[in-house]
Each structure stands twice: as C-alpha cells, then as structure tokens.
Design a protein around this nucleic acid. Structure first.
Lengths: 249, 249
DNA sequence: CTTGCTCCTGACGCAGCGGGAGGTCCGTAC
DNA sequence: GTACGGACCTCCCGCTGCGTCAGGAGCAAG
C-alpha cells in the first residue's frame, strides 16, 4: 500500500500530469528515488510534498516561492499570506480596470445601436481611441467614483439616460436652429435637464464636473465621435448651452 | 511635422519602448519603411496603427488577436467585446477564488493567534491542507453563499464569533467532563448557542448545514486541525452535542 | 577622425507547463 | 526466446509580451 509509486500512478492519484511532476522536479521541488533503470519512484514523503505543492498553488503562490517555502520550514505564514493578498489584489485591480473599459464600450455600442446610429466597424477603432482620450481627463479616483455612481443608479436608469441624451441634443439643436433666446424658458428647461443628467452621473461632485468640462473643451472631437455627431455641430451645441447658463446668471 | 519618425522618437512619443515596437513588427502588426541603412521610419499611418494597438491592449486583447482585428477591417466589434468580457470574467472568477481562500486563511491565522493557540510554521502546511479538505465538502455554489453571508455579517460580527467558538468549546467540554445531563437546561443552552452560531453563518440553509455535518463526520481530523484541538476530544464534543440535541427531541 | 548617441539583428529569460520526437524498459502472451 | 503494447525516459520547441544584454553599424558634431 505504501510502496513507492511510479510516476503514472502518482499522476493519476493526484490529478496532475506526468509532465507537471517532471516540471516540479526540474524546479527542485521534488526528488523521487529512482529504480536501477532510472524510473522515478515516489515514497510517502514525496507524495505528501506533492500535496503541499498543490495546496500552496491553490493560494496562487508561484512554484519558485513554493520552493523556498518548502525548504524553509520556519517561514512566516502570515507574511506569505500577506504577500499573496497584495499580489492578487493588484491583479484584480488591473482586471477590473479592463472590465470597466469593456463595460463602457459595451454600453456605448448598445446605445448607438439602439438610437439608430450604430458604429461602423471601420470607425470602431477611432471610437475606442476617443474613449481613451476622454478617460485620460479623469483621475483614477474620479473614474472609480463614476463607476460607483453607475452601480448606484442601476442598469435601468442608465439605459433610460442613454436613450435620453440623443433626444436632448436633438431638441437643443432645434431650439438653437430656431434662434430661441438663450434666456427663454424653453431653452432654460432643456439646459436644466442637461445639467441634471450630468449631475446625476457626477453625483454633484464639483471635481468631476470640472473634468467633464475639460473633456468637452479639449476633446470635443472625441466626445462627438462617441456621440456620433459632427464635431462642429457639437461645439455649437455646447456654446449655446453655455449661453443659456450664462443668461440664467 | 509629419515626417516619418525614427523608432526612438516614436517610442518617446507613444510611451512605448523600442523593444516593444520591434516586437509588434515581429508579429506583423507594423511594417515601417526603412532608410537605405535599414533604419525604421514610421509614417503617419504607422503611427496611427500604434495607437490602435495600444487602444486594443487597454481592453486586454492579445497581440495576436489585435493582428487579426487590424487585418480584417470588417470584424464585429460587439463579438470582440463579448469575447473579451468572457475571458476577463473567467480570470476574475479565478482570482476571487484564490482571494477567498486567502481571506479564509488570514481569518484562521488571526483567530488562532488571538485565542492563544497560534499555528506553528511547521503545522501551517497541514492546516492549509485541512482547509482544502474541508472546502471539498462544499459545492462552489455553497462556498459562494457562505462568502456572501460573511459579507452580510460584517467584519465585526465575524471576529466576535471567531472569539466565541473556542470559549464555547471549552464550556461544552467542561459540562461534558462534569457529567452534565444532556437534557439539563445548562447543556441545552450551550448547544442552542452552538447551533445558533452555525445557523448564523449557514444562513439557515439546510443544504449547507448538511454539508457542514459531513465535514464534521468525514473530516474530523481536518476540523480539529483548524480548531487547534485534539481530534478525539473534538469527536467527543460533537457526540455530546448530538446527545443534547436528541434529548431535546 | 574620434566621440557619443541611435539604431540594427539575434538570442536568452520569465511561468507553468503542453505536446511531440525518439528511444528504453517492463510485464505478459505466445 | 521473443514479440508486443504500455509506461517511462530525456531533450526540446511553443506560448505571452516584452526586458535585457551582446556585438556591431550609422550618424551628427567637434
């Protein structure tokens, strides 16, 4: 029962592959005895080491580090755990960063598809770049805040607002084209709604609202790219909106 | 201004390294023109391609896949995004799995350190293995539920309960040693509290409570390892607790 | 012409194995 | 004795995204 196992047996019992066991040995994690013919035999001690290796792997510890741990029986478990946590947390942060961008992209694609101005594949890369240009205007903190805020608002609200923006731009455009007085109640109502939508997502944070303003100014091209509007038209809309706000005093 | 750039210039402007640009070229993502001496020159087209590569990288897309995307201008953006999401989500799940285990370990280390029965480094690997043995008794679903429940309960409560368990075991042990009648109110109170603590973490889910029972039975050794108690003593405590429950009817 | 900077082309290294090539060994059936 | 199917052996390349030399050539300024 406790006879030393050939490598195939050990592999079958541990769920590892023969190749993996070879690899562990190459790294010095295992050193089974050998038969005269050079075939590996794993005694109970080695079998246990394999289990320990697996255990440490389920914590995401690297094989090299596992090597040092197994060779130093007086290592500090708490320190090991802390190091691992830090490393994995960093990885997770990186991932959620990527996922955040994907979410934003998905929202944009969906919105543009629903509002009848889908992004042609040839423009996709430009749009993507526009998104990153815009992202650069926010600090990581601000981006995190915006993401939080979106979670608070929920899927429903976001979709509703996404659908409302193009309509609002359209209405403001019509008012502007019709020469509506920036001080008129109609114009004011539209821009109030505009600012309300903005405030909803910025959660009334002045820093973020400020950054958003910079985005409009410095990346007008990017913003219009994402909205699917002509950059000049977009600039006009923004200038008009500003006049309305100024008229309000 | 739009003269073709030497590689060092392009690297400086894009924030990439010369080596990275070489690498992209090896993979066929770029093909700058060359001077007579063989030095690379990047025109506006190539510069834009570099930006596109960077953009796609911020979504976590692999360089090979970027290659196929850049060569097929009529690819499906939505499909690309969906694939990326799936891949990253899988990665994230794997990571949070590892982090979950690390959390559990950290809790255990902390608790054992606080209750005056720290885990000696030499026993750490055994304890780790015991944890995984126990983990095997739960389905992934159940583990997720337990993690959720812990989040609901909050740090405070968890620490309090962690501190209570050893005391409770101690009291039950004393009652048992004193030959307290399993039907006595004292014994009943202790075991009621015991079951209450269990229910708090299992959130009264019968499936999980059942699995927990299996853990005690089949992995008594592992459980005692984690609690820092003698396995035989542990088994006695559990048998006594069961007698108390039976006496209650 | 020399100095000093930029550029070139290999080629190894990392992490954790997968997978294959080409050869040896083992147990069993004939 | 031998022939055959597995199991085992030892290299060695491949993947991912570059970092990092090594050794040599081009280029502008003094």
């Amino acid at each position: 029962m406790d006879d030393p196992l050939p490598i195939g047996e050990l592999a079958a019992r541990t769920g590892l592959t023969v190749r993996a066991l070879h690899h562990y040995e190459d790294l010095g994690l295992l050193s089974p005895t050998r038969t005269v013919a050079g075939h590996r035999r794993y005694g109970p001690r080695e079998v246990e080491r394999v289990q320990q290796i697996r255990s440490l792997q389920t914590l995401g510890v690297s094989l090299r580090e596992i090597g040092t741990v197994l060779e130093a029986p007086d290592f500090d478990p708490a320190a090991l755990v802390a190091r691992q946590r830090a490393a994995l947390a960093a990885e997770q942060a990186r991932l959620s960063d990527l996922l955040g961008r994907l979410d934003a992209l998905e929202r944009l694609l969906r919105q543009r598809a629903q509002t009848g101005t889908p992004i042609p594949p040839t423009d996709f890369l430009q749009t993507l770049r526009a998104m990153q240009d815009i992202e650069q205007h926010y600090s990581p903190d601000q981006l995190a805040q915006l993401a939080d805020r979106r979670r608070q608002l929920g899927e429903e609200t976001i979709r509703a607002v996404e659908a409302e923006w193009p309509r609002l731009f359209e209405q403001v455009g019509q008012a502007m084209d019709a020469g509506a007085d920036p001080a008129s109640p109609e114009a004011r109502a539209l821009i109030d709604r505009w600012d309300e939508l903005v405030a909803m997502f910025t959660n009334h944070d002045p820093g973020i609202t400020q950054s958003l303003g910079n985005v409009w100014k410095q990346s007008g091209g990017s913003a219009s790219q994402m909205a699917g509007l002509d950059p000049d038209r977009m600039r006009e809309l923004f200038a008009y909106a500003q006049r309305v706000r100024d008229a309000r005093g």
